[in-house]
Design a protein around this nucleic acid. Structure first.
Length: 87
DNA sequence: CTTGAGCGT
């Protein structure tokens, strides 16, 4: 199905606690599938974490699985918001 | 040493 693949298998991750690190999210998303890349978006000028990021999976199944399991899952006291990325 | 909806140096 992948009818509307955004660009590669990137998933949007939101509602991330500011105490979360790049490696922590990659470890957490490894539960769903093989994580190819994890990027936490932080403000380039202020240096403050925006609280969300993007996770890239090896295939669509892993990304879809992450959305099914990790979406709404409790992470460091916050519920992660996992969804398909737009851009 | 701060914040809390969002879609990216």
């Amino acid at each position: 199905m992948a009818a509307a693949d955004p660009v590669r298998y990137s998933v949007y991750v939101g509602n991330i606690p500011y105490h979360t690190s790049n490696n922590d999210l990659g470890n957490f998303f490894s539960q769903a599938g093989q994580v190819v890349n994890v990027r936490l978006v932080n403000d380039r000028e202020t240096g403050r974490p925006k609280g969300f990021g993007f996770c890239e999976f090896a295939d669509e199944a892993g990304a879809q699985n992450a959305i099914n399991i990790l979406n709404g899952a409790d992470f460091n006291g916050r519920q992660l918001r996992v969804n398909w990325a737009n851009k």
